[in-house]
Simulated assay, not measured.
Amino acid sequence: MDKAKAAAHRITVCTNCRHVGRPCRPGLDLLKHLQVAISQAGRVLSDDFSLEGSVCMAGCERPCTVAFQATAKATYLFGDIEDAADIGALVSFARLYQDRPDGLTRESERPRALGGKTLARIPAAIVSAEYQLSPLQ
């Protein structure tokens, strides 16, 4: 089975800089180092997270940007991520995010190195049967 399809969680790193119109070397390096760190964190984490690059995540003023996503969970977008300094914090956040059924965390619960780096927390897009309109008869 394809790992990307099997993984319940996704981490996306911005890897293209629209300011210079070419691939973002810091983003590509961050993605590579984060892949190694998640893999080294153990099978429970590495099997549950897919990692990928994205062309633009609209965080250009606060690079590098990293998003955490999962079905029925809040999405997080972090900016000002520094490769070596924040890798451990990103892995710690991945564990926290994985353990939360709704993905929600308070800033005080997140790794200290990510303090002030949360650009967005987007609520989960869940369509509930009780909110759907019933068809006209």
Rank of each mutant, 00 (worst) to 15 (best):
H33S: 11
L104Q: 05
C17A: 11
T65W: 03
E109S: 04
Y131T: 04
Q98P: 01
L28D: 13
S46P: 07
G79W: 02
L30H: 08
R100M: 02
A129V: 09
F68Y: 09
T15Q: 07
R10K: 09
V13C: 04
P135H: 14
A85S: 08
A74M: 03
E107K: 04
E130K: 12
G27V: 14
H19V: 07
F78P: 05
R106N: 10
P101N: 06
G79L: 05
F68S: 01
A85K: 04
I81S: 13
E52V: 10
D2N: 12
F93G: 02
G27D: 11
L90T: 02
D47N: 14
Y131A: 09
P26D: 11
D102W: 00
D29T: 15
R100L: 00
A74P: 00
G27S: 10
C56I: 05
G59S: 10
I87S: 01
H19N: 11
Q40F: 07
S46W: 00
I122Y: 13
I38C: 06
S39H: 15
Q132G: 13
L34F: 01
Q98R: 02
K73T: 03
R100K: 08
P101Q: 11
G116C: 08
I126W: 14
Q137S: 10
L34V: 05
P123N: 15
I126Y: 07
M1K: 04
I38D: 02
A41C: 01
D48H: 04
L34P: 06
M57E: 15
G59E: 07
S92D: 08
D80L: 10
C14Q: 12
A8N: 11
G88R: 03
K117R: 13
K73G: 10
A84N: 11
K3H: 15
R62P: 00
V66K: 14
L119D: 10
L31G: 01
V91D: 05
L30G: 02
P135V: 08
I87Q: 05
K5D: 09
A94H: 05
N16Q: 13
K5A: 15
V44D: 09
Q40T: 10
E61Y: 06
K3N: 08
A113K: 12
D2Q: 02
S134Q: 08
V55A: 13
D48C: 09
G116M: 02
F68N: 02
A84S: 09
D80V: 00
P101I: 01
Y97M: 04
P26F: 03
V91C: 05
Q132L: 14
C17P: 12
D86M: 06
I11D: 01
D86G: 01
D86Y: 02
G21C: 09
D47W: 05
A129S: 13
D2R: 02
Q132R: 15
S134M: 05
L51R: 07
S50C: 10
R18I: 12
A89P: 06
A124Q: 07
T65Q: 13
G116Q: 07
A84R: 10
T118A: 15
G53N: 08
S50E: 09
I126D: 11
A94N: 02
D29W: 04
R62L: 11
A94R: 03
A41S: 15
G53S: 08
R18D: 12
D83L: 09
L96H: 03
G103C: 05
A125G: 10
P111Y: 03
A74F: 09
R110Q: 04
Y76M: 03
